[in-house]
Design a binder for these strands. Structure first.
Length: 576
DNA sequence: GCCGTTTTCGGCCCGACTGTTTTCAGTCG
């Protein structure tokens, strides 16, 4: 898939146009197209061949032609020319907070500054301040931001940021002056990675809240402090932005600060067409200025005759249209989950015994838990030999007798070997209650080989689920070369379920892929891949990813009660 | 550059904050 590559190209064009001082609307058009292509599960190259590029919202005549040219020839004349007009090195400077296209252009023209290093030097030597529109304060800020940029990694895992934000929100809620508090922004939308943390508070004493916020125990540095907005840096280098609003605007503010930007823009356009205006203070009649709603978030949507749109869907990916037509999905909820279908124990690379994992699952109110330790050849993870399996099965039988009606399923995470064969013989595989299969090697194989392996696994008569089908580790490893559309077709034909792996650094299938799989009627599992009992709590991230993928309860295998899950599994055995 | 039950041309979300200014430009979300 070259989707990310094409999206990146369009982003670069937008950046260059921005520095060049082009129309903001044209720049926005490139960014919107990039965003749409990034979230596509269909292969952009295939769409280009089929001539269907213009079906992508935000892609019109001009951009479609450019994509065609780029994919066919490997380069784009327009982009090449642009790079001669505007030095591409300057794009980097836009990453410095406070540096926009105008300042980048100014510094480039007057001081020939091209890189962050040069910018840093110039600021150190006080050459920025005398420039028109700059000044001492601006120079100091640039210096500070450059230093901060070095120590701050760009994006953080939801699994790290969500608990941190909830901790802060809990502390803020304890203050008597605080009426309401919530994480907002991309955290509330449950994106898999997060930049800055947005927190919203309703209070009549804004400044007191600011002060209390700045004194929280996790605060390392106060970056900015205004009347209604302040930013801090925590000891684990998370930036948190706090905004305080009056309680009667809280709903409108929560809607606004939850975003996404793109969702809000579309919502505001819709409002405009009806003679209404939306801001963070409420929804108003354009002509009279009369406020129609603001206290609760739901009001904003209801006044526009929309069903309430859950935060996870607010990405301008068709949710507003669906809300208009009353066709929003009834999203799966954490309480719908009846069990976990992928966990490890001490027998392979987990850290707790079977009994501990089972008790923890039962304590969560689950009806079942599938033990899926690694298979024999995965030496690095102490994969189980057939002999060890026998004793694990024995242990499971004994425990099940004690724990009834709770049920431990004897499962495996069998390795799909480099040649596409599975890591246990068929007889052994038939002995499991559930077989999940994974690729753990040959990550760099070409797409054909990867697809052959996946196809072989999905056609194998015992395989029920493919785990982490994309194979990404967020921030560490790119997905392997999966043709997702083909994988989905295979899953649909063979009736194989696909996992949404809930590990915070996997979340694989990701949200877009999950949505496409759901559209094609593929069964999904949401499992944690827990290696100790605390990891069972990762389920919320898997459910969040599923929700972002418009997934409903009926799409998810482990939302079934035990008896129906067992039915599904045995019917599958009979069919094959 | 995209898009269309108010438009194939003329629109394109809205406000706060900062630092530089004497009324505003640039940046951000």
């Amino acid at each position: 898939m070259r989707n990310r590559e094409v999206a990146g190209l369009l982003e670069n064009i937008a950046d260059l146009l921005e520095i060049k001082g082009e129309s903001l609307f044209r720049i926005g058009a490139y960014r919107e197209a990039a965003r749409r292509i990034e979230s596509l599960t269909q292969d952009i190259a295939q769409m280009a061949e089929a001539g269907t590029l213009r079906q992508i919202p935000g892609v019109g005549e001009a951009i479609a032609t450019k994509i065609q040219e780029y994919l066919a020839t490997g380069h784009l004349r327009y982009y090449d020319d642009l790079q001669h007009e505007v030095d591409p090195a300057l794009i980097d400077l836009l990453r410095v907070p406070g540096m926009g296209p105008k300042k980048v252009q100014l510094l480039h023209k007057s001081l020939s500054i091209r890189t962050m290093d040069e910018l840093y030097q110039a600021a150190r030597e006080h050459r920025l301040a005398p420039l028109p529109g700059m000044g001492v304060k601006t120079e100091q800020n640039i210096l500070k931001e450059l230093e901060r940029l070095q120590q701050r990694t760009q994006r953080h895992l939801l699994g790290k940021v969500l608990p941190a934000s909830e901790e802060v929100v809990a502390l803020l809620r304890e203050l008597p002056i605080v009426q309401r508090a919530d994480p907002a922004g991309s955290i509330r939308r449950m994106k898999d990675t997060i930049g800055d943390i947005d927190i919203l508070v309703a209070s009549d004493s804004s400044e007191k809240v600011m002060k209390a916020f700045a004194q929280l125990p996790m605060v390392k540095e106060v970056i900015a402090m205004g009347a209604t907005k302040s930013s801090i840096l925590t000891y684990d280098n998370l930036q948190m932005d706090l905004r305080v609003v009056e309680p009667n605007c809280y709903g409108a503010a929560l809607q606004y600060f939850t975003g996404s930007k793109s969702h809000n823009i579309q919502l505001r356009e819709l409002a405009q067409k009806r003679g209404l205006k939306i801001s963070e203070y409420g929804i108003f009649e354009e002509t009279t200025g009369k406020r129609l709603g603001s206290k609760e978030e739901e009001e904003i949507y209801h006044i526009l005759d929309l069903a309430f749109i859950p935060p996870e869907l607010r990405e301008n990916q068709g949710e507003i249209e669906a809300a208009q037509e009353g066709k929003l999905p009834k999203l799966i909820e954490i309480g719908d989950i009846q069990g976990d279908l992928h966990v490890h124990t001490k027998a392979s690379d987990g850290s707790e015994p079977l009994m501990a994992m089972a008790s923890a699952a039962r304590a969560k109110g689950y009806q079942y838990l599938a033990i899926c330790d690694h298979s024999k050849s995965l030496g690095i993870a102490r994969g189980l030999s057939v002999e060890k399996l026998q004793s694990q099965w024995e242990e499971i039988r004994e425990l099940n007798a004690q724990l009834v009606p709770f049920r431990i399923l004897a499962g495996t995470e069998v390795d799909i070997r480099n040649d596409g064969t599975l890591d246990y013989d068929d007889d052994t595989l038939r002995g499991f209650d559930i077989v999940t299969a994974s690729i753990h090697s040959g990550f760099n194989q070409p797409q054909e080989r990867i697809m052959e392996r996946l196809a072989a696994a999905m056609h194998h008569p015992t395989v029920d689920v493919i785990n982490h089908p994309q194979g990404r580790i967020i921030g560490a490893r790119d997905p392997y070369a999966v043709d997702l559309e083909m994988a989905f077709q295979l899953a649909a034909v063979t009736g194989t379920a696909l996992e949404i792996n809930a590990m915070p650094d996997r979340l694989d299938l990701d949200d877009h892929a999950a949505r496409r799989a759901k559209e094609l009627g593929i069964k999904l599992t949401i499992s944690t891949d827990a290696h100790d009992s605390s990891h069972l709590n990762f389920m919320r991230y898997g459910v969040a990813t599923a929700r972002r993928g418009w997934v409903e309860k009926k799409d998810v295998l482990n939302a079934l009660p035990l008896s129906e899950l067992l039915n599904w599994l045995s019917q599958r055995r009979r069919k094959r």
